[in-house]
Design a protein around this nucleic acid. Structure first.
Length: 248
DNA sequence: CCGGTTGTTCAGCG
DNA sequence: GCGCTGAACAACCG
């Protein structure tokens, strides 16, 4: 689950903010004292943050995680919270207790969906990694918090960049536009997901044919992270420095 | 129906 | 301590 989906999660949880917890069961960390009241719900990157009176839970949905509000699946939830006005079930996620110090250490300037996101701060962090491939830096949660593999591929396509280009190969302008695209694509992803039209807006991700030029999409693992990249070697990787990648 | 995968952490090694 | 690799976890979709 990528950053924009966590904002939708936060919004789905809004009816329970400020509500008393009637019942809590499942995988509750040992350090948790009492989940009395859910004070507020935050999202940062791919983290869902539930702030209670004296405890804070960090939810990470990883690849297969999900949640249901006022509904349940056939299997046991990892965590279940019951409020006076409804309930929420969490499945296949990581539930971790964090301290107030850990909460205050979150850097909102790199959270792609945050009002406090800061283009210059992110650009600077990215520029500090000139030898890294763009596919790896985009997925680096300490630079682009909330950016996942779908977004990586679509952002690279939109900027017409080869996944294996190095940050240092980009012009100053190209790097700025990449950072800016990460931000704007996050919001596009959010709106498309809410509208149920995310999949049909993919240009290359899990596509056989490039949505732009109609030529075949290349599918291979790239970078140190070795996550799957989908790219069009016709539309992407045509700048002189990057041509060698396209031909490799 | 089977295989890939919207992700992270940790053990083990050199 | 570092970089890197592979394993482990997990459930849904096409």
């Amino acid at each position: 689950m990528e950053g924009p989906s966590l904002v939708i999660f936060k919004e789905d949880m809004a009816p329970f903010a400020g509500k008393k917890v009637i019942e809590a069961w499942g995988s509750i960390p040992e350090s948790v004292q009492a989940l009395k009241k859910l004070k507020k719900v935050l999202s940062w990157g791919k983290h869902g943050i539930l702030v209670f009176d004296s405890d804070i839970l960090r939810i990470h949905f990883l690849m297969f995680g999900s949640y249901l509000v006022n509904a349940r699946k056939d299997r046991e939830p990892k965590l279940s919270l019951v409020f006076p006005n409804g309930f929420v079930n969490f499945y296949t996620c990581s539930v971790k207790a964090i301290s107030p110090a850990e909460l205050s250490a979150y850097d909102w300037s790199i959270d792609l969906m945050s009002p406090d996101w800061n283009e210059k701060a992110v650009r600077k962090k990215a520029a500090e990694k000139p030898g890294r491939m763009v596919c790896d830096v985009l997925m680096d949660q300490t630079v682009f918090a909330g950016l996942g593999n779908i977004m990586k591929n679509e952002i690279l396509y939109n900027r017409r960049l080869h996944p294996e280009a190095r940050i240092g190969d980009l012009s100053s302008k190209e790097l700025t536009l990449l950072v800016r695209e990460a931000r704007s694509y996050s919001f596009a992803f959010y709106h498309w997901k809410l509208a149920g039209v995310l999949r049909k807006n993919w240009a290359v991700f899990r596509k056989r044919i490039c949505g732009g030029c109609g030529q075949s999409v290349t599918k291979r693992e790239t970078g140190i992270g070795a996550r799957m990249s989908y790219y069009c070697s016709h539309c992407q990787g045509n700048s002189p420095k990057l041509r060698s990648f396209a031909e490799a």
